[in-house]
């Protein structure tokens, strides 16, 4: 039983990473209608930034959040206006998809060229600090990760529900063609949601740097896992995306323990396809939303 609970807890912690990434994907998908395949690679990129900020300048990864997240936001805005602005307005979504793929190739291989293929992982003074509750060991860092995911979801949710731009983003994900008719600047809406998506990649990057060892190739798989989490939770639902991530994390840890590490991918993508076929609105999504996709 203790093992099972331990697996559950580890799963939740892995899942919180998926969750953060999935929220970012969800925002970008909502407005631009593409799977932003470079999301995972951006996460890895920001993980490297956090890693080097700690290794070279001794900046604490959690303190670094206050640098990396605004940086990621600005990078997101820049990328959008530089690359995606024109493509986002096209009806042919292949262009945006390929731009994301190109970005993925570019960033992934620049990381390889600049920082080599050696897997990196941080070793901070409090890395090994754990809390023991009833025989279960939970490291503080992993708990902090879950906290990070919850705060991210809360902030994004508040932004979507309480701000004017957030309302516009929601409107755009309901019906992009109607947004200009309501006097909404659709490019700006896309830009903001894209920038927040990349900002979340910054959050996830910092989280990844503290807990996991990562290398340059990690990104693509991670983006796909985030996509699975998103489908599981239901597209267009912030808390759903987070919950999807948590569920996926738990399932993967269970699969690794009971079936074998090599079969994790089969389980997660198998679930992915089953969900797409039989439950396209996801576990927490609204039924009506899928018809528009």
């Amino acid at each position: 039983m203790v093992t099972f609970t331990q697996i559950l807890i580890n799963g939740i912690l892995l899942g919180s990473m998926y969750g953060i990434a999935a929220i970012g994907l969800s925002l970008i998908f909502g407005t631009m209608r593409i799977i932003f395949l470079a999301q995972g690679t951006m996460i890895v990129f920001f993980a490297y930034v956090v890693y080097w900020a700690f290794t070279l300048a001794g900046i604490d990864p959690y303190l670094c959040l206050f640098i990396v997240v605004p940086l990621a936001f600005v990078v997101g805005l820049g990328l959008f206006y530089l690359l995606f602005r024109k493509a986002a307005a096209l009806e042919d979504k292949n262009v945006s998809l390929l731009l994301a793929v190109g970005l993925m190739y570019l960033v992934e291989n620049l990381i390889l060229k600049i920082w080599s293929a050696t897997p990196r992982g941080l070793n901070i003074s409090y890395s090994s600090a754990t809390i023991v509750v009833g025989g279960l060991r939970v490291s503080w860092l992993r708990l902090a990760l879950l906290g990070l995911a919850l705060v991210s979801a809360l902030v994004v949710n508040l932004f979507l529900k309480k701000t004017r731009v957030g309302t516009a983003v929601r409107a755009a994900s309901e019906d992009m063609e109607a947004t200009p008719l309501q006097g909404i600047n659709s490019a700006w809406v896309c830009a903001v949601s894209f920038a927040i998506g990349i900002g979340l990649a910054g959050v996830a990057g910092a989280g990844m740097a503290t807990v996991y060892s990562f290398d340059y190739q990690f990104g693509f798989t991670f983006a796909l896992k985030a996509l699975v989490a998103l489908a599981l939770g239901g597209i267009g639902n912030v808390w759903g995306a987070l919950a999807g991530g948590l569920i996926l994390g738990i399932l993967e840890n269970l699969a690794a323990f009971y079936i074998g590490i090599g079969w994790i991918e089969i389980v997660s993508y198998g679930i992915f396809i089953l969900v797409l076929i039989f439950l396209p609105q996801g576990l927490f999504g609204r039924r009506g939303l899928v018809k528009k996709v």
């Binding site: 799977i35 489908a231 089969i266 993508y269 396809i273 797409l276 996709v293």
Partner: peptide
């Protein structure tokens, strides 16, 4: 996939299929 999924969902499904097939050969 094609009887139940359209547009983006079909793309997602084929992406997942690709991963499954490659992992099957890997294992």
């Amino acid at each position: 996939l094609l009887s139940r999924l359209r547009g983006d969902y079909f793309s997602f499904g084929t992406l997942g299929m690709g991963m499954i097939v490659s992992v099957l050969f890997l294992n």
